[in-house]
Design a protein around this nucleic acid. Structure first.
Lengths: 203, 203
DNA sequence: AAAACAATAAAACACTGTTCGATTAATATA
DNA sequence: TATATTAATCGAACAGTGTTTTATTGTTTT
């Protein structure tokens, strides 16, 4: 229908992202499609492609917003008046709870596959790095004198474990009694791990 | 072309599974398709559907074989002459190494999504349960007198963490120096966790 | 040899993301 | 103000996907 100019380019981008996320409140990530999004927004599929280059880039932007939201919430937990292990536990809970509350958005982030040959954009890696740094800062509060490489490794270990518990918790693959949810596994992991990690480096 | 009878029903099933796994040695799971498998086997796509009911069931059988192979290898590590924490470390390494050596087969298992409304078959859950029981037996060797629920939770915590590290290691999402691979994170996790877990329950 | 059966294939269908050409509204120019 | 240019948008076509339905044809039974 030619130029409609109901929205500017930027408005339309924002609208698409918003409608996509709204769609994910009702429909699992695996059921999402460019055509369904286009129908929700009221534009033709090819218009969205012209706007985002391709469907994959659209999904990457949705995922960027999700990561930003997780990071924004994380930043509210970085209360230095709390003990570092308490901050780490709060960060882990927040990560887990966000995934449980927004399972489809969260799955879209971590189930997303780049086309073969392409690599995730730097902005994504930067967001991940920021998240790691939050963890590393808490670890440094526990042991200020530790080598960077040790802090680096431990931060990744912690995050990978929390991520693993969250993955299986969201997908309900823990085969665990209902009363024992992902949260209790996270606590079990973090408390035990940090107790040993803290001790082993202080002697 | 009507009945060819190059293979019996069972032979053809086995051939399809074998060719699919061979295909996964070269092509990522996301690039797999019924039509590509059919072409490899030399039969029409609809023939494979007649044989397996649908594509999803075919994938489930491939994944069943993968899980069986992991479990078979695991069983070789259950050497009771080793200390339980050493057995657990060997199991974790094996899990991680299998995933790294057969990334596409492994991803097909854990990235696979059942159609909405359907649920994974009981055979799968049984295989998972067997894996958990191997871990639980080692934990019981550490603390024979512990409540079942505690053993249960800890086994799932450990497996979820190992799984999480493996996931990110396979997908190369650890953003860690090359020298520090998933194996070292697994060791860091397990050694620290078990040291604390063992201590806290023995006093 | 004829009839029944069943294994296989081929074609059509509904869905996917993408490309391309046509259309047309908004803008720039004369 | 009329015309030309530009650019936003759509619609149709394409190649891919899994699935269903129909047709074919080799094998077995009568």
């Amino acid at each position: 229908m030619g130029r409609r100019s109901d929205h500017t380019s930027e408005e339309l981008r924002a609208l698409v992202l918003q409608k996509t996320r709204a769609l994910l409140d009702q429909v699992p990530a695996s059921e999402l499609s460019l055509r369904k999004i286009a129908k929700q927004v009221g534009y033709a599929p090819s218009t969205l492609i012209a706007l985002f280059q391709n469907y994959n880039s659209l999904l990457l932007e949705v995922n960027g917003q999700t990561l930003d939201e997780i990071y924004l919430r994380s930043s509210h937990q970085l209360d230095t008046s709390l003990a570092p292990d308490q901050v780490l536990l709060a960060l882990a809970y927040l990560y887990h709870d966000y995934a449980m509350d927004n399972p489809h958005q969260w799955e879209l982030v971590f189930d997303h596959k780049m086309p073969v040959g392409e690599v995730v954009p730097e902005t994504h890696q930067a967001r991940m790095a920021a998240h790691f740094e939050s963890i590393e800062r808490q670890l440094q509060r526990i042991h200020a004198d530790l080598a960077a490489i040790e802090i680096n490794t431990t931060a990744r270990t912690i995050w990978a474990c929390v991520h693993g518990i969250t993955v299986l918790s969201v997908k309900n693959k823990l085969f665990v009694a209902d009363q024992l949810n992902g949260r209790s596994l996270i606590e079990s992991f973090l408390v035990n791990f940090l107790r040993s990690w803290g001790d082993s480096h202080s002697r």
